[in-house]
Amino acid sequence: MAALAEPVAGRSKGARPSRRGRPSWLPPLFLMIPGAIWLGVFFVVPLVFLVSQSIQSGSVADGYKVTWHFANYTYAFQHFWHQFVRSLVYALLATIFSLLIGYPLAYAIALKAGRFKSILLVIVIAPFFTSFLLRTLAWQTILAGDGLVVRFFRSTHLIAVTNWLHLTNGDQLLSSPLAVVSGLTYNFLPFMVLPLFASLERLDPRLLEASGDLYARPIVAFRHVTLPLSLPGIVAGTLLTFIPAAGDFINAQLLGNTNTTMIGSVINSQFLTVLDYSGAAALSVALMATIVVLVALYVRKAGTEELV
């Protein structure tokens, strides 16, 4: 509202160029051009195509026409709501596990690591030096057949617990929901750790000393000082983990079984194998919209500090 009102208000006094002969709004506008072009070409245009495709009907051979065919959406939901919900649940689980692992890790690196800080950070990022695909394939070996992890799960009867939770089936870990969630957690963990580290590192240790002086036990100090101050990191980290995890399809494909397919795989096969471009576009748009809504709700909650 302010943005709209101000230039008009200025104009009512006479929109004369400024003293240096150049309108003052020109340089910022000029500076925005590269960003605007980038956004336009790589985001807006593809998005318009995608949304448009999702309401078209036709076939690849005969071409598509916009017929405002919203049935694509009902079709997509009717057939694939399982995978939709599953993707969101897996992404949520992966985000929670990432937070549970990532927070202590980031805390230790930021506040306790001393001179090992940089090297520890490098270790967190090191997996990125190899390809995403290879890292996921490595998990096949870790969880496979008679590996150490499987034997540990069997000997401690943990596998009975995970079976009961429907996270595994039978006596194997590979090809199970547990494997998929583990893969997601592992692959997106650095996205959680780095923003957490950034916000924890800025924490002023004197605040903790002050809370100690005020007879706060460490746990209370953590609850009232550290946690609220690291909240921006938590929000950024959870978003950076949740959003890509919800759309991921590599982990489910390589580590899952026939009942763990995520929505990313469905979209992929609808586009490439079934050649149902409209259905796939509808799924993509729906996924995007769902995530935007969820994220908006979450950020709003986080902004009012109701999360803690």
Partner: peptide, 12 residues
């Protein structure tokens, strides 16, 4: 109209 203008022709 932007959305409507996006149709594609057949590829055969």
């Amino acid at each position: 109209s932007l959305l409507a203008g996006c149709g594609t022709t057949g590829i055969a």
